Amino acid sequence: MKTNLLREFYKFTHRRIPLYGLLVLLGLMLYTIGTSYKVTPSLITQGFGAGQWTIIIIMAISSDMIAMEWRDHTMTTLLYKTSNKSILYLAKFIVLVVYSFILLVFGIIFSFIIKFLMVGSKYSWQDNFNGHSLINALFLNMGGTMLYLLFIISLSLMLVLLIKSNATVIMIGLAIGFFGTDLSSLAISAFSGLKSILAWNPLNMINIITQLSNREMASITYLTNSELIIANLVYAIIFFWIGILIFKKRAILGRE
């Protein structure tokens, strides 16, 4: 496990993608400010869109991580050196989780800098926001995003193995990021008699990035904070194990 993990970290850190991801995140956060009417406490607690943009960035990187290996014919070498295919898959998953955490940390740092430059002390980090201080709400939202990233990474890896097209997976990620909440709410509203069941649909899971700091979101998701946390983790585990099964089968068949 250690050897596979070190190899994956070495490959990942020696690519330009980690740096590009940070620069893209900063650019998209600035874009969020540019398209917003004004800086508000809500925008600050959302890290100027850092959570949403991190999800999309990670989905793009996750889908490319395995697709690139097959495309460049390096996966065969990796599989030859690895006796346990599940360990190789797990190593890739861990690298993506660690990078997700790094992106969120930088998202928080960028948020502090942007707030200081844009509004100075107009909004104190101790100001109340839905029963939390602004700074606590920011950390809760980023924490919720980290939980959702476990869901999205496992989903991305599974989808790219199923579809074998990282471009398609990225499009699916964009659709989930921008329309997932609306589609989930629409389905629950259309079949209100089944809302206790439909509330557990995968598209509803993205709401965890805002619900932990805003208890009123529970009236939209129809799930408590603890239920939303558990559901995200369960989905992540399910997608992860399906991904491993597909990966092992594909490795055995040697398909590209």
Rank of each mutant, 00 (worst) to 15 (best):
L161I: 13
N201V: 11
L162T: 06
I237V: 10
V39N: 07
H73Y: 14
G173S: 07
A199Q: 14
T221P: 07
G51R: 03
L25K: 02
K115L: 08
S133P: 08
L150N: 02
S184R: 11
N214Y: 06
I209N: 07
Y222Q: 13
L174W: 09
S165E: 06
A137T: 01
Y99G: 01
Y80K: 09
A199M: 13
K85P: 13
T40P: 14
S83Q: 08
R16H: 10
V105S: 02
I109H: 08
L162D: 09
T45L: 08
S192H: 10
I94W: 01
P18C: 00
F178E: 04
K11D: 07
I61T: 03
E227T: 12
M1H: 05
N136W: 11
T77L: 13
E8P: 03
W53L: 01
S156T: 01
A67W: 06
L78P: 15
S133E: 04
S36P: 07
I135L: 15
T168I: 15
F129G: 05
V160N: 09
T35K: 07
S121K: 14
I109T: 06
F48D: 05
L134D: 12
M68N: 14
S196M: 09
V97A: 00
K122P: 15
L147S: 05
Y80H: 12
K248N: 15
L134C: 05
A137N: 03
T168L: 13
R7W: 12
L186E: 15
V24H: 00
K85H: 13
G21T: 04
G193V: 08
V24L: 01
